[in-house]
Design a binder for these strands. Structure first.
Lengths: 172, 172
DNA sequence: TATAACATGTAACAAGTTACATGATTTC
DNA sequence: GAAATCATGTAACTTGTTACATGTTATA
């Protein structure tokens, strides 16, 4: 995913950050949109530094572990601009992990299927609740969060329809 | 993705198939839901055979290349049943590659942003058209395809809203 | 007779994850 | 004094992709 690098550059454009700080922000504020693990983040930062997109400067508070504070370079800015434009016009089809099992739903009794889908629905609703409680972000970051919200709402509506179809089949 | 193995088992339950045949079917009939490449398919078949989930029997027509025809075993059937139940109650959050660029949309002029999103929309609409022209499948395979259709429609509606928001901003 | 379709694979690479390792400081 | 937080990483593994290799047969 090239967009992970775009994200890093986009965040560093606004503010110098060290790896830990980036990780924190992504896990707390952007958890609904992406899921970058710690080692991946450090790996990407090193890679981007080697490319000259960002530079490091060390910082230490007291005797705490050294912080490597990253800052975007002019080369990095150019990369950001071109990646942004490229990715903005691209539509990437998304595949749903949960689609495949759905194809074999008719292997189960309507009763069993309903029970499982109710479990799915609970998980979905709890994610929806989390989303609706996250603070409003400035600019189009909020648009990204809204997109995700729309998607979750569409999923909830779909699940409801599948469940009602199953109920109809049960009555026959 | 465990669901790829579920898919293979699910297809082989209905009919013995050789690798080439499986690939054809997935690329022609299920292209909208998954995207399994040839080497991945052969790799998975070998792995599943090693596990005892499927067995091979060779078949040759004339002097053509040998076909390895795969068939599900009782062990494979057990695996299918348990994977189906497990995956059916799981809700797997989906991340959208195209979300991240959206967060930085306000770095572009409304004009440029609109142009790019129109390009995205065209690609989306052409995928929608393909979907609406795929033949109806039996049973809940059709449900899977419908889910995908719902998703694409929600995406189209979202894109339209973003585009109209941009138009409103331009007028200010 | 060239090209597409049939049929199966290998080797090298890319991306990302898990589990592990290290050590300081703050909080309970 | 134990546990959580701060801070950065490495090594091994998993999964999947791209590009390449091979040879037959039907079709244009």
């Amino acid at each position: 995913m090239t967009t992970r690098e775009l994200l890093f550059l986009g965040l560093l454009r606004h503010q110098k950050m060290h790896g830990y700080q980036l990780n924190e922000f992504i896990q707390q504020d952007l958890a609904v949109c992406t899921d970058i693990k710690k080692p991946t983040a450090y790996y990407l930062l090193n890679k981007m530094e080697a490319r000259g997109w960002i530079t490091q400067s060390s910082e230490q508070i007291g005797n705490r572990p050294l912080r490597r504070v990253y800052q975007i370079t002019p080369t990095g800015e150019i990369a950001f601009q071109s990646m942004l434009r490229e990715s903005m016009q691209e539509y990437t089809p998304t595949y749903f992990e949960d689609d495949i099992p759905l194809a074999f739903l008719d292997e189960l009794t309507t009763d069993e299927a309903s029970t499982y889908l109710e479990t799915r629905k609970e998980q979905l609703l709890s994610e929806l609740e989390i989303m609706q409680n996250t603070p409003v972000h400035p600019g189009t970051v909020q648009w990204m969060l809204e997109h995700r919200l729309r998607h979750l709402q569409a999923e909830a509506a779909w699940l409801d329809e599948v469940l009602s179809r199953l109920t109809l089949m049960e009555e026959e």
